[in-house]
């Protein structure tokens, strides 16, 4: 120790201040971050490990130990044979239902909200802000207040339990956040651009398609991320506005795992859970920072 001290005294300070890699500060910062990271990763780890073990191994071992023998049988079963009630065609049905719900809902909700956001940003008309305010506050109304009257409305137009009905519901409930997202984005674009286009004689749709759309690719990606994950993960609307044959994957997953009949096959359950998680996880890992931007943009200003 003393030798080092003497050394430091002897050397005139010069250049970068020497730093200990393992300073107390670093140990604390990285220690906390790593412990937190482990807490966050455990469930994913457990899900994957459980889903590739056989049932005997699950009964014997513990949930954290890696599989002795890897089997993809549970995944196959979860996808193709798992039972919900009397149906035993697996999660695949719910998966394709969710695809059929998510794709049109995402497209329609984004189309409507982008045009609407553009109208609010650049073509303010009398009363527009009143409706916009109602829309934003609407985002805070608990769904429980609205679900029943919407059932009645959808029955009136004959879309209750139909796919189209659920698409409408997703469009409606996605509208506040998406409209806000697009409106704020279009407001952030230089106004001169819009004015110049108007002077050049372009009108509402012309400006939107030729000027605004080409500049808004990032915000559309953010909106797509937001909607795909949101709609795919939805449970409440799926359970209320569809019939069992059309149940989205989340509802079917819950029914499979929490069904009271039969022997519990935990490996199949976890494989089914992973299958449900894959779509949003892929979206998340591929989109990276845009995902953060999406949720932050949607949330902070909401």
């Amino acid at each position: 120790m003393t030798a080092i001290d003497v050394n430091i005294e002897a050397v005139e300070p010069r250049g970068t201040k020497p730093k200990k890699v393992l300073s107390n500060r670093n140990i604390m910062v990285y220690g906390v971050l790593i412990v937190a990271a482990i807490y966050y990763l455990i469930p994913l780890y457990v899900m994957i490990m459980t889903s590739v073990k056989g049932m005997p191994e699950i009964r014997m071992g513990n949930i954290f130990s890696p599989p002795v023998e890897i089997t993809f049988e549970p995944w196959v079963k979860a996808w193709a044979h798992a039972c919900t009630g009397l149906n035993c065609d697996g999660l695949s049905r719910g998966f394709w239902n969710s695809v059929m719900i998510t794709v049109p809902s995402t497209i329609i909700s984004i189309l409507i909200a982008s045009v609407n956001g553009y109208a609010l940003a650049n073509w303010k008309f009398k009363g527009a802000n009143v409706f916009f305010t109602i829309l934003i506050f609407g985002a805070f109304i608990p769904y429980q207040v609205l679900i029943y009257p919407i059932v009645l409305l959808l029955s009136q137009i004959g879309l209750y339990t139909k796919l189209a009905g659920l698409v409408i519901v997703h469009t409606v409930f996605g509208m506040p956040i998406l409209t806000l997202l697009f409106r704020n984005y279009f407001i952030s674009l230089p106004e001169e651009l819009f004015k110049a286009a108007r002077v050049d004689g372009a009108a509402f749709w012309g400006i939107f398609i030729k000027i605004m759309l080409p500049m808004s690719l990032p915000i559309f990606v953010v909106a797509i991320i937001l909607q795909v994950t949101g709609i795919w993960n939805d449970f409440l609307f799926g359970v209320i506005y569809t019939k069992p044959a059309n149940y989205p994957i989340t509802v079917q997953l819950n029914n499979i795992v929490n069904s009271v009949q039969g022997v519990k096959e935990y490996n199949v359950n976890m494989a089914a859970t992973m299958l449900t998680a894959i779509v949003p996880l892929v979206v998340y890992f591929v989109s990276g920072k845009l995902f953060v931007r999406g949720i932050a943009a949607g949330a902070v200003k909401g």
Binding site: Y40, I63, F235, V257, F285
Partner: peptide, 23 residues
């Protein structure tokens, strides 16, 4: 780190509930 902390938010609450039920 950010990716790790945020991935659960991308997943359905159903998944969260089921996996923690299991753990």
């Amino acid at each position: 780190f950010r990716t790790i902390y945020l991935y659960p938010y991308a997943m359905s609450a159903i998944i969260t509930g089921l996996v923690w039920q299991w753990i």
